[in-house]
Structures are given as structure tokens and as C-alpha cells.
Design a protein around this nucleic acid. Sequence first.
DNA 1: ATAAGTTTGTATCAAAATGATGCAATTGAC
DNA 2: GTCAATTGCATCATTTTGATACAAACTTAT
Lengths: 243, 243
Amino acid sequence: MTPSQNIKTFLEAGPEYLPSVSVDCVIFGFHQRQLKVLLLEFKHTKAFSLPGGFVFKGESTDEAATRILWERTGVKDIYLEQFHTFGEQNRGNWDVHKATMSSHGFDLETEHWLLQRFISIGYYALVDFSKVKPTPDIFSDLGGWHDIHQIPALILDHNRIVEKALTTLRLMLDHKLVGFNLLSETFTMNELQSLYETILDKKLLRANFQRKMLSMEILERVEKKFSGKAHKPPYVYRIKKTT
Amino acid sequence: MTPSQNIKTFLEAGPEYLPSVSVDCVIFGFHQRQLKVLLLEFKHTKAFSLPGGFVFKGESTDEAATRILWERTGVKDIYLEQFHTFGEQNRGNWDVHKATMSSHGFDLETEHWLLQRFISIGYYALVDFSKVKPTPDIFSDLGGWHDIHQIPALILDHNRIVEKALTTLRLMLDHKLVGFNLLSETFTMNELQSLYETILDKKLLRANFQRKMLSMEILERVEKKFSGKAHKPPYVYRIKKTT
DNA sequence: ATAAGTTTGTATCAAAATGATGCAATTGAC
DNA sequence: GTCAATTGCATCATTTTGATACAAACTTAT
């Protein structure tokens, strides 16, 4: 299908979606000691947005979020959690969508379903950076990772959504073992610590961090890693399977 | 207006609501050392439900929750917080609403807006038990408090919603000073402790609880209360105004 | 009036968790 | 081998939390 046909199909799918309800995903990744968020970019308007979508009448909102995540990243079986629903009356304007559609030759009337008021259910996802292939959607032309400290201006209230997702992630990190989802299957204590430091945005004492993590007895040593570096090689860990 | 006229007006208001979106409130109160939840009862079907409602196109979901809370309890300026959105595809059946409407002489066709799929945004409220006058709504005939340990079977997925609200409340209590909203303006340390014990469902050591609360430096002693009881009278406290 | 029975406010000590520092062990570069 | 770097862990100090004890303040019974 050509892009325009894709868009036509999408626009005609309006009636298959649950009205008024949308889903936006804040997809976190961790790479080179930076916490990243996956954003989509609209070529024509140079605007950025969170990957999002609508809920089919025949699926739950959780299923919709999972689907959208899969469409955008190509991964399934991912840590995904709802964190807040954004229901302001005026969450921002839809000019960007209008312009994007227009650039493809579709001029939407004001009453078009796509331009109505939507509430947005926010989900955050924690993914293994290395496993993700960012994929643009119908609206956007580019998908890419952005350092959490350098998020550009986003459409609608998406900046606020990212903020709230980050706050929630920080809270979660304290009393749920959630961070591991951002690392690959095996990792060193150093990698785990720098993940925590990045998310919490503060330095931690190495010895004490190690003591705390090991005392939880959820880590399993895999092997010594011969890093090729000029120092003692670190142990490599993996999460214990809770069978 | 007669009840039937009320219902007619309500049914005709369908187009003024945001489609697919509803709000349900878990209203917590504290009385006689019990944590209570406000439930509505349907006379004809003897079913119970959470107080809930729909979102006007011209209001935010937060405003809708505040309004519903006010309609049901007669109180404003209340601690109210969104905790989860329930978006299962089939959250349960609407037989109770159908039967209720039918008993008032309104037989709804399957396509009626009231019988469509709704997602529900859950809010929990913490109210001063003594200030609330439970008020039934269009569907229900009775509003009343129920001990959290004796919640009857509720319509749709409302039992799950209550569960989730309680879980969230317990989490919140640990790292946000939220419990005070359930007490009257002044209270004794004993009352505060039994509130915590009830919500967390475990005994706390009196001396340590007192030490912890006082160390936060958010309580202000008001006066000695001459309780008339045969023992040393307790201090009465109030939350410090953070001016 | 005094003694008895309660509950409150707080002190005190023990135990556990956390913060801070030091040091031996292991590796590659030279 | 020596050096620099980093890891793993021990050890000590400090803080927080858990548990117990006891004097103070009040009413009721005698």
C-alpha cells in the first residue's frame, strides 16, 4: 500500500475505535548511561509526539497499549504499566494532525472523528534498548530515542505526560523491582547502579548499592566477564527465575 | 420534578456526555475504627454499585469526579485522586441499569448510549465521615456506608475497583501524608493511630507511632482534651498550616 | 482522702538498616 | 614485574526502627 492508501484506511477505521479514548505510551530505554524516551517526529511540521493510538471496540485498553507498543517498537512481552489518565477538557490543539493529513491530501472537517476531544490513558514501558527498532506510524516519519533531559516540545500535553511517567517510574523503582526491564538479560552491578543513578538522578555509594541489591536475593551470578579492560572483571548477573 | 422526569432528562442528556468514558468514585470514610466505603443500592434489583457518572463534553475528568462526589455526598473541597483506569473490553453486564430503567417505564434498546461499552476512570476520595450525607442518584434509592471488610457483591467490575483503590490508599499512606483527610479537623494520637492500623490492617506500637508522627513536624497541639475518661487526657492535634 | 485502675507522653535500650571508608584481588598496559 | 583501574567485600560509625518501661494525669471505688 502507498502511504496515502494507508492513511485512507486509517481514517476510515474511525467507527471501529472506541470514541473519546486514546492511549499514549512513554517508552523508556537505557543506553550509554542515559535514560531515553522514544518519540515520533512529523516531517512536515517538525513536531514531536509520543507514540499513541486508539482503542478498538474489540480490545481492552491494555491490549491496545500492547499493540501500539508492538507496532512502534517491534517487541512484545514487555514491561508495560498504566500510570495515569489525562482527561483535561482542552489537552491542546490538533493542528499537527490536521497539517499532516492535509500534506497527504486529506483535508479534515472540524467534525472529523480524529479532531474530537480524546482523553488519553498513559502507559509507560520499560524496554531493552538493544532489542528495539523504532518504527514510525501513519502520522510520523521518524521514530527516535531522546535523552530524558533533552525532550523537545511535544504536541498536545505530551510533555506533561512524559513528566508524569518519569515521576511514576521513580516512585516505582523504590518499592518494586522494575528497573531490570531496561537492561539486557545479563548485566553487571555497575550497569545496574548507573541505571538507578540515572533514573533517580543522584549518586549512590557503590559498596552500599551492591550490598542492598545482593541482600534482596533476586540476583544470580552468571559468570565472570572478561571485559578486556585493565582491571578486575566484574561478575555478570541475571534475575533469578521465580519458579 | 418526579423521579421519572428526572430519569427522562438524564437519558436525553446522552449526547452531552463524552462517549465511552465514565467515572467511578471510591469514597472512603472512617468511623468507629472502621474504614468504610460509600455504596449506592438499587431498590428493585437489590444490587450495589459505586457512585459514578459520566463526563460532560465541557468538563475535565477531574471536574466530573468532583461533581459526582459533590452530588453524592454534598461535600466539596475534598481529597480526591485518580488511581486507575479500568478498560477491560467486557467489564460486566448492564442488566441492573436496564432493569432499573425498565422499572421506571423506560425500556432501553440494545443500542442505547447507556448500554454501550465504557471505560471507567477510578477516583478515590477521603472524606470526613461526619460531614457527609449520602445521597442516592438517579439509578439508586439508597446510599450508605459499608465496612471495607464487608463489601457486598457489586455490579460490573466494581469490586475490583474497590480492591485497587484500597491497595493504592495503602501505598499512598506510606509516603504521602494523606490519612488526615479521613479525620475531623482535630484528633488525638490514638485516633490517628487506629486510622493507620485499620487501613494498613496491622497493629502498630503506640510509642513508636507517636515518635514517628511527631518527628515529621506537621502536627500542632491544640489543647488538652478533658475526655471525662478515667485516665490521663490525651493531647488534641491538628495539621500545621503550611503557609 | 486515698488507693486502684487506665491511658498518655516520653525516655531508654536493643536491633536492624544505612552511610562512609578502606583494602585485598584481578586484570591489561607498559 | 610494576602500575593504574575497578571490583568485591569487610568494617566501622551513624541513623532509624523495634521493644519495653515508667512517671504523669485523670476517674472511680472505698
